[in-house]
């Protein structure tokens, strides 16, 4: 299946799901003629139409167009399956961060995130990386919490001491 075909099919699925949710929006006595469902439904229909157009075009050109595809500069993804797994691993680092930051606190969790991401991307683990991660987390803490005054979670530490 070509990427255009896959995107078209995905578009139809998204449009259908979104339409169903839009149709479930309750009506209100304060509503206008267009109503809260009006534009969402229209968006879903337009998306479905565009998706079908893409599906149709990719089916038509699949055999007719033997020329190699010019790679789009936005796309940097060569081999899908392995690559998707790698990407999900990277995403998981962020998800774990969100899960642990309320308990471990901003500095420790962020140091962990930097450490994990550097290791994941660089494939090496050593003292220098750990040092940079810890130093980076402290710099970020100084920057965001101390200087900008953004209340990042302190974690359980203040209750322990």
């Amino acid at each position: 299946m070509s990427r255009d075909l896959a995107f078209g099919v995905a578009g139809v699925v998204v449009a259908a799901g979104y339409y169903r949710m839009a149709a479930a929006i309750p009506t209100s006595a304060l509503a206008d003629a267009v109503g809260p469902q009006g534009l969402p439904k229209a968006y879903a229909v337009v998306l479905a139409a565009l998706s079908l157009l893409l599906v149709g075009r990719s089916l038509r050109t699949r055999n007719a167009d033997p020329r190699p595809r010019i790679p789009d500069p936005e796309s940097r993804i060569p081999d899908p399956r392995f690559h998707l797994l790698r990407a999900l691993g990277m995403l998981a680092i962020g998800v774990v961060y969100i899960a642990v930051v309320p308990w471990l606190g901003y500095v420790v969790a962020l140091a962990g995130l930097v450490l994990a991401a550097t290791w994941y991307r660089g494939g090496v683990f050593n003292g220098q990386i750990a040092t940079v991660a810890a130093a980076g987390a402290i710099v970020f803490w100084l920057l965001f919490v101390r200087l900008l005054g953004i209340p990042h979670p302190p974690g359980v530490w203040p209750t322990l001491f």
Partner: peptide
């Protein structure tokens, strides 16, 4: 790799 990690840190912060 450092750049990646710190962009990640910047995003979540």
């Amino acid at each position: 790799p450092y750049l990646t990690a710190f962009i990640y840190a910047l995003v979540v912060s």
